[in-house]
Nucleic acid binder design. Sequence first.
DNA 1: GTCTATACATAGATAGAC
DNA 2: GTCTATCTATGTATAGAC
Lengths: 167, 167
Amino acid sequence: MREQGYAAVTSRRIAERAGLKPQLVHYYFRTMDELFLALLHRLTDAYLVQFARTLASDTPLRGLWDISSNPETAALTTEFLALANHRKDIGAEIIRLNRRMRSMQAEVFKQVLQSAGFDLEEYPPEAVAVVLESIARGIALESALGITRSHAGMRALVERYLAKFEP
Amino acid sequence: MREQGYAAVTSRRIAERAGLKPQLVHYYFRTMDELFLALLHRLTDAYLVQFARTLASDTPLRGLWDISSNPETAALTTEFLALANHRKDIGAEIIRLNRRMRSMQAEVFKQVLQSAGFDLEEYPPEAVAVVLESIARGIALESALGITRSHAGMRALVERYLAKFEP
DNA sequence: GTCTATACATAGATAGAC
DNA sequence: GTCTATCTATGTATAGAC
């Protein structure tokens, strides 16, 4: 999925990599939809664990930044978003993941923003979290394509803001 | 492509919508790669025109925000980014588009930032442009999925920053 | 420019033997 | 749990008639 996109994920190719016959794929997952959902669940679980650990650390903002600015993660996220475009089960699951994620973030960001003296009305924790993540993913997506033109400047810009919260 | 993802774009379906036979698609575009490239070129041209008009207006930042926060545009961009994952021709074309776009943005942002009294070393115009666009696309992608939870807060947050440049 | 005919490859999925 | 055999649908692409 990462290497060639979701459309290249077929029972035949999966079986080939596993050194087995394609029919086995249908033994474990009746349909390809089931397989994609299982994959999403597995990634989701691993992600939420990593995420919880990061938010519990003493540099949650930098941790979140690192996770979201990973080009491979961003590319895979893009594939799932594209998949969600036409497989509504996938879309529903992504929405669920998003909800859980944002709730976790909101609590931590609330504390971080408050102790830095920000007005939570003006800077809603969830909104700030989405902003940080969007910027990170923006950079990551460009990196995945091979574009790095303005990234040094962006990282410096973000770094100055992060330093206000996590010196 | 917008409705069912790039993988659903087949010569058969295209012909069906056009009320013609699938073979005609191959008459106009020898391969599907050629077709996708032609589509990207057409979208790219239209986009750059819209883009130039926006940047020449008296509210280029808000204009850029509006363009990038359109959910349909964001969804289509996502499809092309996913396509670029495994069709290198598409990736190369997207990089070209990106370069032209950023150059156009940089000039305008430079002026806007300067007249608002920002240090261009600290706030590189291109970097600021990528940040604005990334946030807009982040919101748009969530909207396309049906997530709107923290969007009001985000829009208000962004609006306060935009107002500093375009009262 | 549009059609019919056709080839060839690939994908999803099921049945049943071992 | 893994295999062989097999069906059926779908996709890309070419040749050649009109």
